[in-house]
Design a protein around this nucleic acid. Structure first.
Length: 848
RNA sequence: GCGGGCGUGGUGGAAUUGGUAGACGCGCGGGAUUCAAAAUCCCGUUCCGCAAGGAGUGUGGGUUCGAUUCCCACCGCCCGCACCA
């Protein structure tokens, strides 16, 4: 064996061998138990970043481990290839989105290959290719036929200069990111998927997802937002009726005003002939569209002059148009109870409206003033007529019963979840397969004519949607009446692409989206791994899409991902250089960020060399998510070139628990590189002919096998790594013996999923075949149990001594040993213990 | 603003889920080897204290024989908020 392990040679050699032997191709016909391991597929931005490396390394370790445990493993990879960055590149660099995307895919695929992932590349797919999105169009038509697709008017961010719809992230302080124009809200007729039809099942289905993180289930539950409340109508002073929805019917006696959304019909009518009202509505439209912006914005309102009759007190409540009321939720109108809702409180304070207490801790507390904020908590009703003294829950029921008996309102379930708007007024997406005909209306494209292919000849030099202004593409004959008609020029949200790709991986027939038999074999995904940022949208949409396909009988499964793991981000420290004022040479207060390869480390200080080759001190900034704008990025390719694929893979798995953030460090990756070499030297000491037994080492070996398996299955890679270090330390120090050779061989198999190149190289040197085809080492359960344990001896809960005893010693014996202990005797000084607590094999606590 | 999460030595973290806090890694200090360096190996490394001993898991309270773990309040940081993926 060579002195040093040479990753540059070994990595590419073994990657070639795995490719040639098709080691990681999933066999659909296999009789082995199956395992589908999937990581969220990447957007082909151009380069793999460290976050991808972390994500795919975790999946790879699990996939390789499962193979060693005798499973037929499906571990595929593809590309989430539609989306805005390709169009931005087209506008900024004059390249075609398709060419740009495909080139990025080629580059990133080469990068992934250099990391040695055990992927089945024969199933690779890219969502931007017609043989993917054509099937998506077919599925969309199936959902349309099932009544799950419809059109309605919906507001978008409109940039009047660029003549385009902007994504929320493209709107900065109310202005278009490129044009700087004030963004307007504009209503467009758009396509929607009826996810709300599935609200109840998506909510209930969460209970069955016991291998999902609790936090993700809670977030989805809150997102779906089932609420029970009261819907009732106010009689308005102009004779109209105004329906409102409230979840706090118990606080109805505290209602001091009524508020409607800016786009509510009542607001629209109020604006007719009223310049000020119209101005206020325009102001609301000009503000941000996101929920976060609406809720953090100052509460503003406009008094319509109308009043609403309170159903119990008969009081006339003013009706406001308010910027914090959402048209999409409930009825778009609310009864406002300032005492017990913070938004209403802020509003009432600003406009001098009454704030009445109707919930208090007790009846004595009924007139306690508020201390600057609303009290949304529990209590009993006060100042509330017939509700006085009731609990919040009882009062809710009583008001609803009263309303239903009186015929002026009813109990109602309302969902926060809204239907999914899938229309995008963009080129680089799946064309929506519909045709608009002057005679027949909206007509689906016949399936035989699919795919509706994106035209390649598009022009990004002028503003607007290139698909809509393409000279010929949209002009077609109506499939129904053959008269000239127009194609739909909206494309589908890219979340649709990622809502079924995991089904397409199981089989890729040319004539249909998937083969149900293959889905029955492989799905659900046994382990899905990706970022927490997808906790709600992607994962909820994929769940919905799966259920929708199940409902129309295309597949059997209802939940796509049996187990979910959300990994943390990769972070890095930032380097901030303060600009000096060019005139005075003084610090200017402005800073710029430096990249890791622009700085120089001396001890724990960091410097930058200026043009005169002088060292300028650099401030080490916060450790944050790697991002180009902060320049705290490292390129995986450079790391692989310097340290090898195994070192970076090992770094990704070491130290930080996978669900938490992983701080990148130069020292850390160097340590990983050293460990690869250290293992190589140890593997070189393997001696098949060694004899002699080392019982302690045998025990350590088998304990490590069992623990590492448990850790990997729970995705606790950092713990598995720590165990492997321990066994390495022990094996290195042990004298040569058959046991030591067995430990070394075991160690090689344990690291095989994590450092596959090193493992192959050493396995070959030991005269074996491919470690990619090797089995996980067996262990003897009898060896796992220690026969001696060290117990703690405490007095009043404080550790005073420890003692090694036989495992399983009974309570009386342990107590006797502890009481007789010198240190215990010294503290007791003759007194008898008040109480003794004995936990066998753990501790004895003496209460003095 | 609303929803979700996290907080342990210089540093990343571990702790059979209420039972010996700091496993293992990084860094640092000392030593060996070397003409020298790199690499490698050995020893040490929570804090205060010469020691005996004491303190200690973001802060403040509580429950318990015993709390990193459970409860309450607060502080700080992170993620999501429906057209980024």
């Amino acid at each position: 064996m060579n002195e040093r392990f040479d990753p540059a040679r070994a990595d590419s050699h073994w990657q070639k061998v795995w490719d040639e032997k098709q080691c990681f191709r999933a066999d659909d016909a296999s009789s082995k138990p199956r395992s589908y391991v999937l990581e969220m597929f990447p957007y082909p931005s151009g380069r793999i970043h460290i976050g991808h490396v972390r994500n795919y390394t975790m999946g790879d370790v699990l996939a390789r481990y499962k193979r060693m445990r005798g499973f037929e493993v499906l571990h595929p990879m593809g590309w989430d290839a539609f989306g805005m960055p390709a169009e931005n590149a087209a506008m900024e660099q004059g390249v075609h989105p398709g060419g740009w995307t495909r080139e990025n895919i080629a580059n990133m695929k080469a990068q992934l290959k250099r990391l040695g992932f055990a992927l089945d590349w024969s199933r690779e797919l890219a969502t931007c290719e017609p043989d993917y999105y054509g099937h998506e169009q077919a599925l969309f038509l199936d959902l349309y036929a099932a009544g799950l697709v419809y059109r309605k008017e919906s507001a978008v961010n409109w940039d009047p200069i660029d003549q385009t719809v902007l994504a929320n992230e493209q709107v900065i302080d109310g202005r278009g990111w490129r044009s700087g124009a004030l963004v307007e809200k504009r209503k467009l007729s758009q396509w929607f998927l009826k996810i709300t039809d599935f609200a109840e099942e998506l909510l209930e289905g969460l209970d069955s997802l016991d291998k999902w993180p609790e936090k993700v289930r809670t977030m989805q539950e809150n997102w779906i937002g089932k609420s029970q409340g009261l819907e009732f109508s106010f009689d308005l002073s102009n004779g109209d009726r105004l329906p409102v929805y409230t979840t706090r019917a118990d606080t109805i006696f505290g209602a001091s005003f009524v508020a409607v959304a800016a786009d509510h019909p009542v607001a629209q009518r109020a604006a007719q002939g009223n310049v000020e009202a119209q101005a206020f509505i325009d102001l609301c439209k000009a503000s941000g569209t996101t929920a976060a912006e609406l809720e953090t914005a100052e509460k503003l309102g406009f008094d319509t002059g109308l009043t609403a009759k309170h159903p119990f007190t008969g009081a006339d409540l003013p009706v406001y148009i308010a910027n914090f009321v959402l048209m999409e939720y409930g009825t778009g109108a609310i009864m406002a109870v300032p005492g017990h809702d913070q938004r209403d409180f802020d509003f009432a304070t600003k406009y001098g409206l009454p704030i009445q207490r109707v919930i208090a801790a007790s009846a004595d507390d009924a007139d306690r003033p508020f201390t600057g904020e609303a009290e949304a908590g529990d209590g009993i009703c006060v100042n509330s007529g017939f509700l006085d003294g009731m609990s919040v829950d009882d009062a809710k029921a009583a008001v609803i019963a009263h309303a239903e008996a009186g015929g002026w309102g009813e109990g109602k379930t309302v969902w926060r979840l809204r239907d999914w708007g899938v229309s995008r007024q963009r080129y680089w997406g799946t064309p929506i397969p519909f045709i608009h005909c002057g005679t027949c209306g909206v007509v689906p494209v016949p399936k035989a004519q699919l795919p509706v292919v994106l035209p390649e000849d598009v022009d990004f030099s002028v503003p607007g949607n290139p698909l809509a202004r393409h000279p010929t593409w949209k002009h077609v004959d109506c499939p129904a009446c053959s008269k000239p008609a127009m194609r739909e020029t909206d494309t589908l949200d890219t979340f649709v692409n990622s809502s079924w790709y995991f089904l397409r991986f199981a089989s890729q027939p040319g004539d249909r989206p998937f083969d149900p038999a293959a889905i029955a074999k492989w799905l659900p995904v046994e382990q899905y791994i990706g970022g927490i940022e997808h906790a709600i949208l992607h994962l909820l949409y994929a769940r919905f899409w799966t259920r929708a396909l199940a409902r129309i009988g295309m597949i059997e499964i209802k939940e796509p991902f049996a187990s979910l793991f959300t990994q943390g981000m990769v972070t890095h420290e930032t380097y901030e250089l303060e600009y000096l004022d060019p005139l005075t040479g003084e610090k200017s207060g402005k800073t710029t960020y430096l990249a890791p390869d622009e700085i120089e480390r001396v001890g724990d200080k960091v410097y930058w060399r200026n043009l005169k080759n002088e060292r300028v001190p650099v401030k080490i900034g916060r450790v944050i998510k790697m991002s180009k704008s902060k320049k705290n990025v490292v390129d995986p390719d450079e790391i692989v070139a310097t340290y090898g694929a195994d070192a970076i893979r090992w770094f990704m798995l070491s130290d930080s628990p996978p669900e938490r953030d992983l701080p990148w460090s130069e020292a850390g990756i160097e340590g990983c590189g050293r460990f690869v070499q250290r293992l190589w030297r140890l593997f070189g000491q393997y001696d098949a002919a060694a004899t002699g037994e080392d019982k302690a080492l045998d025990r350590k070996r088998d304990q490590t096998i069992a623990a590492a398996a448990e850790d990997i299955e729970a995705l606790g890679f950092n713990k598995a790594v720590a165990r492997i270090y321990e066994l390495t330390n022990t094996a290195e120090k042990a004298a040569p013996s058959a046991s030591r050779s067995a430990a070394i061989r075991t160690l090689l198999l344990l690291v095989a999923p994590m450092m596959p190149h090193l493992a192959e190289e050493a396995w070959q040197a030991m005269g074996e075949g491919l470690v990619a085809e090797a089995a996980w080492p067996p262990f003897d359960p009898a060896l796992l149990v220690e026969d001696e344990v060290t117990i703690a001896i405490q007095v009043n809960g404080k550790l005073r001594d420890t003692q090694t005893v036989a495992k399983g010693m009974d309570k009386a014996e342990l107590e006797a040993i502890a009481v007789a202990n010198n240190k215990v005797q010294a503290i007791l000084s003759g007194a008898a213990p008040k109480k003794v607590i004995v936990v066998p094999d753990r501790l004895v606590n003496i209460v003095a």
